[in-house]
Simulated scan of single mutants.
Amino acid sequence: MKSMFVQSNVVWVLMQIEEEQGNYKKAFKYQRDYHALRDSIKLENKLKDVVVTEFKRVNSENERLTKSNKIIQTENINHEKTILTTVIILVFVVILLVLFYKRNLEKKATNLLLKKQRDEIVEINKELESLNEEVVAQMEITTAQNKELEQVNKVKNKFFSIVSHELRSPIATLKMLFGLHRQGHLNNDELNNLLTKFEETIYSTSAFLDNLLHWSKSQLDGIVMSRSEFDISNLVDENARLIETAIRLKGIKLEINIEPNTKAFADVNMINVVVNNLISNAMKFCDTGDAITVEAHNSKGKMFLSIRANGPGISKENIEKLFDLEHTITTSTSGEKGHHISLVLCKDMIEQNNGEIKVESEDGKGTTFLIELPELEF
């Protein structure tokens, strides 16, 4: 640029020299070169200005870019920090989720284990309940067996007590009778008279032993029953014939009022024992001139049998004890012993045949035994 400016000055001087020398052609040529150089200088200046301007613009742009880069770098750093923070938070969240998931799995496993244990506990409780029920049932069975054993033992003790008590008296009497006869204190007539009176005691004791054996068998071994339908009038008539002589000798009237074809469904042998005992007991407690009335009929699917005696009657207190084994002996109008074992036997036999026995009595107004039995098999 500087050389071109010097050159243009030189050309300008040469132009003036040639113009002064009158060499206009060369002066014009130098003038033209001078203007060309001046245009070049201007162009170069313009280019320089453009370059400077562009340079300044570029520098400004560079500075702006530098600032932008710094801002971007700052933002990038901030972004990196944000991203790093976000990544850390995400990693932490992921760790928490993993831990939560693991804890859930452990919780589910624990719940499954607890459910399994709970189910096992329920099963164990059911087994324990079942075992408890079995134990309770076994205890009930044991209790029932103990009660049964106590009852059997009580029956056995009572049986031997009654037997020893009832046999001791007639045997002692017979022993004393034979001793007096052997010692010569009794002649044959007196002995015969005492033996005749003692015969009634023997019959009474025999009947008592029969009843006691029947009752003991039913309590200890059980009686095999054979139920069937039968006419009650035939059974009553048969028993009436057996005691006909005794009734006539005592002066008692026996009335039998049984409707025709009166049926009962039961074990005929057991009912025969019941009727025999009730009629015999009624006869024992009747005075001369009293009456025994036997009535029977069917109604509403049942057979109703009543045996009434015009005897002394039974007090309310004794009625409550009548079928109790503890209340064993009473004395009849003629001094005979009445054994309540026969009434206990009657009650047991009636109940074993799905029947019922009741007593109606008042002091001085007689006693009635009422029996209900099924008429037909159910």
Rank of each mutant, 00 (worst) to 15 (best):
L113K: 00
T53G: 15
A109T: 00
V136E: 14
E134R: 02
E106D: 05
S68R: 03
T110E: 11
E133N: 10
Q73C: 04
H79V: 11
E80V: 05
S130H: 05
L114N: 06
D119W: 01
N59C: 03
V122F: 07
V52R: 14
F100Y: 09
E127V: 07
V91W: 06
S68W: 01
L97I: 04
A109I: 00
I124P: 00
L65M: 06
F55Y: 08
L96V: 10
K107H: 01
K56L: 12
I89M: 12
V50K: 15
E134L: 05
V50N: 14
V52W: 05
L112R: 12
E80K: 07
E133A: 07
T82Q: 15
L113Y: 01
T86I: 09
V122A: 13
L112W: 02
Q73Y: 06
V135I: 07
I124K: 12
E133M: 13
I124N: 11
V98G: 15
T66C: 11
N132S: 02
I121A: 08
S130T: 11
L96D: 08
K107T: 07
E129M: 13
L90P: 06
K107I: 06
N59S: 13
I72E: 10
L65Q: 03
R118T: 01
S130K: 14
F100K: 02
K81Q: 12
V91I: 14
E80W: 02
S68D: 04
S130N: 05
N125D: 09
N59K: 09
L131H: 09
I77Q: 13
L113G: 00
T66Y: 07
K67P: 01
F92H: 13
K81R: 10
L131N: 09
N69L: 14
T86D: 15
S68G: 09
V50A: 13
V93D: 12
V94Y: 00
D119I: 06
N59V: 00
Q117P: 01
R103C: 03
K56H: 02
T86E: 15
R103Q: 09
T66A: 12
N78Y: 03
N62R: 08
L112F: 04
L131M: 10
K81M: 03
V136W: 02
E106K: 03
V87G: 13
E134D: 10
L90C: 15
K67S: 15
R118Q: 08
T66D: 12
L84E: 13
K108C: 01
Q73W: 00
V51G: 10
L105A: 12
V122T: 10
E123H: 03
V122R: 14
V87A: 15
E133K: 05
I89H: 04
E120K: 07
K116Y: 00
V87E: 14
V91G: 15
T53D: 13
E63V: 02
I71Y: 07
